[in-house]
C-alpha cells in the first residue's frame, strides 16, 4: 500500500516538474528563436538550388551545417502515451519538432552571418539518427540536421548606386 502511494507520488511529482519546467523551457526557447529570427531578418534564405541574387565576391560559397537534439519532458511523454490510446494529433511533439527545426536552421544562419555571408540557399532540413535512438521504446527526442550553402547576395532594389557616379567636380 505504502509502496503504491510512493510510486504514485513520484509520478505526480515528475509530472508537475515536467509540466512546469518543460513549459517554461519551451516558452523561453520559442522566445529566443523569435528574437534571433528578427536579428537575422535581412538574410536571404531559400531551399532553391540556384543561388538567387548571387553577386561576385571574394568569398567562395560554403556549406554550413547546424544540428540539435531536443528532448521531450515527462509530462509531454505521458500526455502522448495517453493520446496513443485514442489516436489523433500530438501537439506537444509537434512543438518539440518545430523547436528542433527552427534551432538547427538558426544555427546555420548564425554561422553564415558570423562569417560575413548574407544569404543561404539549398537549405535542407533532415531528421537524423543519433546513437541508434529510433528503435521503438527509446526516449522521445527530435534530432535535426540542417545544412545549406552560404553565399553573398544583393537584392536588386537595394543595390546602391556607385558612389563615383555622383562625382560633381
Amino acid at each position: 500500500m505504502v509502496e503504491l502511494l510512493c510510486t504514485l507520488a513520484t509520478v505526480v511529482v515528475l509530472l508537475v516538474l515536467g509540466f512546469s519546467v518543460g513549459s517554461w523551457t519551451e516558452a523561453h526557447h520559442f522566445h529566443s528563436i523569435a528574437l534571433r529570427h528578427q536579428r537575422l531578418q535581412h538574410m536571404l534564405v531559400s531551399d532553391l538550388p540556384n543561388f538567387p541574387y548571387a553577386v561576385p565576391s571574394s568569398m567562395p560559397p560554403q556549406m554550413l551545417v547546424g544540428e540539435v537534439v531536443v528532448a521531450s519532458d515527462y509530462f509531454k511523454s505521458f500526455a502522448a502515451s495517453l493520446r496513443n490510446l485514442v489516436g489523433g494529433r500530438v501537439q506537444s511533439y509537434e512543438r518539440m519538432l518545430e523547436r528542433a527545426r527552427q534551432e538547427a536552421t538558426l544555427r546555420v544562419l548564425e554561422q553564415a552571418h558570423a562569417l560575413g555571408y548574407n544569404a543561404v540557399c539549398n537549405l535542407r532540413i533532415e531528421s537524423v539518427d543519433v546513437g541508434g535512438n529510433t528503435a521503438p521504446g527509446r526516449m522521445p527526442m527530435a534530432s535535426v540536421l540542417a545544412f545549406g550553402t552560404a553565399y553573398v547576395a544583393q537584392l536588386p532594389q537595394s543595390s546602391p548606386a556607385p558612389a563615383s557616379a555622383h562625382d560633381a567636380s
Binding site: 515528475l14 515536467g18 519546467v21 528532448a71 515527462y74 534530432s143
Partner: peptide, 20 residues
C-alpha cells in the same frame, strides 16, 4: 544525462555534440 533531461525537456547537449 539524457534520461534526466528527458524529465524536464530541453536540448540534449551531449547528443548534439555527438552529432557534431
Amino acid at each position: 544525462a539524457a534520461g534526466l533531461k528527458n524529465l524536464v525537456g530541453g536540448e540534449l547537449r551531449g547528443y548534439t555534440e555527438l552529432l557534431t
